[in-house]
C-alpha cells in the first residue's frame, strides 16, 4: 500500500542523519560515565574502577574550578549585555540614515568580522593590541599607555568582551533592523504631524517596535550563560591572565586533554552539560512565554 511505502521512505531518509547523531552526540554522552570512574584508557570503560561522586566533589573543592565558573558567567553575561546594547543602538541609528547606498555600505563594513574565524581575528588582535601596535600608537597621541591589553588580568576580560562586540554587533543588529523596517510607516507620519521630534519618535515608536525582539534575544541568550567563547579565549589568553580569563571550556581542555585527567575533565564538562541543558530549557520556556517563540 502507498501509505506504508511512503512511511518506509521517510525512515530510510532520516536513518543516516540519525545514525550519525547517535554516533557523535549520544555515544559521547554515554561515554560521560567516566566522570564517575577513575578512568584509565588502558583498562577502558569496563575495566576502570568506579569512584562514585569523587570527581564531582573534587571539582567543587578546587579553587581553580570555582574561579573558572565565575569567569565564564561574568564574561558570557557581559558579552550578551554589551553586544545587545551595541546592536540595538547601531540598528536605531542606522535606521535614521536616509541614503540606502550609504546604509548598505556601512552594513557591508560591519558584517565582515562575523565571517572570519577567531584564529584569524586573534592573530589580528594580537598585532594591533601589541605594545607597538595600532591601538597603543593611537592611545599614545593622548599620552596614554602603553597598555598590555592581553597581559593584564584586570583588562583581559574586557578585551574579550569588546573584541566580541567588534565581531558580532553588526550581525546581531540584523534582527533589529528587520523589526524596524516592519514598523508601519504611518505611525511615524502621524507622529510628525503631531510635532514629534526625532528622539520622541525613537522613544515612542522605534523602541517599542523592536522591544519584542529584544526580549526574545535576551531570553534565548540565557541558554548561553556558560558559553563564554572557547575559540576566542583559547586564541587570545596566556597563563598570565588565567585568573580572570580562563573559562570552563578552556579549563576542561587543559585538564582533560592536555594533562590527561580524563575523568576530572569529563566531570567538569558533564556538570556544564547538565546546567546548560537546564538553562536552555529555561530560555526556550521564557522565549515562548514572553516572546511567543517556537523553535519549530
Amino acid at each position: 500500500m502507498f501509505k506504508d511505502s511512503e512511511r518506509r521512505a521517510y525512515y530510510v531518509m532520516i536513518l543516516p542523519g540519525l545514525a550519525l547523531m547517535v554516533a557523535f552526540t549520544f555515544v559521547p554522552l554515554a561515554y560521560s560515565v567516566i566522570a564517575f570512574q577513575k578512568f584509565n584508557p588502558a583498562l577502558g570503560v569496563q575495566g576502570s574502577p568506579w569512584v562514585g561522586l569523587d570527581n564531582i566533589l573534587y571539582m567543587f573543592s578546587l579553587r581553580d574550578a570555582r574561579q573558572v565558573f565565575f569567569n565564564t558567567i561574568f564574561i558570557a553575561t557581559m558579552k550578551m549585555i554589551v553586544v545587545l546594547v551595541a546592536a540595538v543602538a547601531f540598528a536605531l541609528l542606522l535606521n535614521e540614515v536616509r541614503f540606502l547606498r550609504i546604509r548598505r555600505s556601512i552594513q557591508t563594513m560591519v558584517y565582515l568580522p562575523h565571517f572570519l574565524s577567531w584564529v584569524i581575528l586573534a592573530g589580528i588582535l594580537r598585532t594591533i593590541l601589541a605594545r607597538d601596535g595600532l591601538v597603543n600608537d593611537f592611545l599614545a597621541i593622548f599620552g596614554i599607555g602603553p597598555i598590555y591589553f592581553l597581559g593584564q588580568p584586570n583588562i583581559f576580560p574586557w578585551v574579550i568582551i569588546f573584541s566580541d562586540v567588534w565581531k558580532e554587533f553588526g550581525f546581531e543588529a540584523i534582527v533589529y533592523l528587520a523589526a524596524l523596517t516592519s514598523i508601519d510607516p504611518t505611525l511615524y507620519e502621524v507622529a510628525e504631524l503631531d510635532g514629534a521630534n526625532r528622539v520622541q519618535k525613537m522613544r515612542y515608536i522605534s523602541i517599542p517596535g523592536i522591544a519584542p525582539v529584544i526580549v526574545l534575544v535576551a531570553c534565548l541568550s540565557i541558554g548561553n550563560v556558560l558559553n563564554a567563547g572557547f575559540d576566542q579565549i583559547f586564541n587570545l589568553y596566556s597563563p598570565i591572565v588565567y585568573s580572570t580569563g580562563d573559562i570552563i571550556d578552556t579549563y576542561v581542555y587543559r585538564i582533560g586533554l592536555i594533562q590527561g585527567q580524563y575523568s576530572l575533565g569529563t566531570a567538569v564538562g558533564l556538570f556544564k552539560t547538565v546546567v546548560a541543558l537546564i538553562l536552555i530549557g529555561v530560555s526556550y520556556w521564557a522565549a515562548g512565554k514572553f516572546a511567543n517563540y517556537r523553535i519549530f
Binding site: 567516566i34 571550556d249 586533554l257 564538562g269
Partner: peptide, 15 residues
C-alpha cells in the same frame, strides 16, 4: 541532540 553540549573529553574519546 542540538542543545546537548557534550563535553570535549568524552567526545574526543569517542572519535
Amino acid at each position: 541532540g542540538m542543545i546537548l553540549n557534550v563535553g570535549i573529553v568524552p567526545w574526543y574519546l569517542t572519535v
